[in-house]
Nucleic acid binder design. Structure first.
Lengths: 174, 174
DNA sequence: TAATCTTTTTGATTTAAATCAAAAGAAATA
DNA sequence: TATTTCTTTTGATTTAAATCAAAAAGATTA
């Protein structure tokens, strides 16, 4: 990464803090920012039949946004909230596009990190098809073992597409 | 797209044909090619407990490969086979990397099309969590309605993570 | 510290879908 | 065209997980 790019990024990112339970992004708005987590956990979720369904969790060292809203500049169904008090650096979509336009290496970085993210999504799809609740949870533990016990049981259950009672019983049997 | 890029691409892609049921990519090998479908349907699948589990289907106008194998140059669990007699244009990973190195616009094209693909995967995850078999199939019909009846029932069932008997009954009730 | 609210666990019952089994219908092959 | 093979449908039974209900445990606030 070139010096001028580093400088340009640091000029554009801004530090922000969110309290536990606070809404980071509201689905009523277009998501114009991407958040890099310094400390804490953020969650993406959407509403189905009035209930919150967790989509994914991000912790230290990861970027989070509402992907389609951010990339396609339109509204989407996803909310983002803070599971713990969380410190982030945020980058506006316009600044990101500026960086894409001025630094070809940014395009490349983006392509490569998309590839990784892509892999995660495929893993996720595979795990959702494992039929039993136990297998789903096992898979969750593998991918999220570091944050497993920092996330409330009910949120994990909706992420896995199983009821909280079932998840509680699955955990009890380990 | 610049003329020289167009020319460079057409010099590098090669026409190939596969018979119905033929293996396009074997999971024992690294996937070094990406296939653009001109006519027909290709399927990605993997084996679980000796059974084929369909991962996704691609038809006319779409690109298919074994993503992690192709992008990270390592073996992965996915096979690709032909559901119908299929005509494709194929592009080697080295040629693609050459194009990335020589045409910044290729990086951009890749980034944008990844964004779309990303959206599809998120849709997919959402649909897999819809609890009932009927809802899963409804969602499949929306995204794959044009190829729905060109794909055998059993393959759709494994794609959705439900049994073929259940899918047959779901269909009967429509 | 008590009181309230939230989250998790435990128990009983119901239900959707899996499994087992076999017949019917299509497609491929001789 | 008949025969074999593969795919889909239908029926009976079982099972995993949802739902309903309530208690226990853990947080948060007064």
């Amino acid at each position: 990464m070139s010096e001028s790019l580093k400088e340009d990024i640091s000029k554009r990112i801004r530090f922000e803090q969110f309290k536990k339970g606070e809404l980071v992004h509201n689905a009523d708005l277009i998501c114009t920012k991407s958040y890099f987590i310094q400390d804490g956990i953020l969650r993406t979720y959407f509403l189905k039949d009035g209930k919150e369904i967790s989509e994914y969790f991000c912790s230290e060292g990861e970027w989070i946004n509402s992907p389609r809203s951010f990339m396609q500049r339109k509204k989407d169904i996803y909310y983002i909230d803070a599971i713990e008090n969380t410190d982030v650096y945020c980058l506006d979509v316009n600044d990101l596009l500026f960086l894409f336009d001025h630094y070809p290496e940014m395009e490349r970085y983006s392509r490569l990190s998309m590839g990784t993210l892509f892999g995660h999504l495929i893993e996720r799809i595979t795990s959702l098809r494992f039929t039993t609740a136990r297998e789903k949870y096992e898979h969750f533990c593998q991918t999220y073992h570091d944050v497993n016990h920092r996330i409330p049981l009910g949120m994990i259950a909706s992420y896995l597409g199983i009821s909280q009672e079932t998840l509680s019983r699955v955990r009890a049997k380990r």
